[in-house]
Design a protein around this nucleic acid. Structure first.
Lengths: 107, 107
DNA sequence: AATTTATATAACGATTCGATTATATAGTAT
DNA sequence: ATACTATATAATCGAATCGTTATATAAATT
């Protein structure tokens, strides 16, 4: 399954924060992120690489800087996935209620 | 950040599949899952525990069986999070386009 | 050419993860 | 009481993750 990789990339607070910041600011250099996190520059670079490899982020080259921005495909994927799951859940909700009414026993 | 835990729980293909199946079937016993995955019963039990601890799943007690079902809160959380992120992204999209038009240099 | 700046990579260690097998527990049925 | 069924827990192990410091690279500046 492919969406698991999108989720795995967001399972780290630093990476989630980077994604959030990119949505807010559009584009940032990797070094701009460093002072805002309590970890080293190589650690930030590694997180950015994970985000890039998982399809969350694209990188450009501008002189010696490497500005990154969100690639929207992953977000769309999650929105579609979660929307479908909720639709499925709702479609089966009445049936589930029947089951529970019939045999629910509290722990 | 709290949503990272919801994502972490779905970063494993087995757990994602369990969540999907729960949306489809409403409620299943832990042992019903076992034959459908190429891993052992204890491994399934562990995954279910992770899903429970991360708030994706609730468990009942019916005799010796432990039927589980989705707790919808986590899904709602992801839908809200992703919707907000997309809104933020769109709000900043025009500004991002300006930036790129001005200084975009392909790698 | 030498230095500085921005970033990436390498080597390492601690921790976490996901799997296994073996065993425990708690209901149910005999 | 005994045995069977459904599930959980424990011990262990190898792989992956996340951090660090040290070093490499590549473009910009002097």
């Amino acid at each position: 399954m492919e969406v698991t990789k999108a989720f795995a990339a967001l399972s780290d607070p630093t990476r989630l924060a980077i994604v959030t910041r990119l949505a807010e600011r559009g584009e940032v250099d990797v070094m701009d992120l460093v002072p805002d996190f309590p970890i080293s520059q190589p650690a930030i670079s590694r997180h950015v690489k994970v985000l890039e490899e998982s399809g969350w982020v694209t990188r450009r080259k501008v002189g010696t800087r490497r500005p990154i921005r969100l690639a929207p495909g992953r977000l769309d994927e999650i929105i579609v996935w979660s929307g479908r799951l909720r639709a499925t859940l709702r479609a089966n909700y009445a049936r589930l209620d029947d089951l529970l009414a019939e045999k629910d026993i509290p722990e």
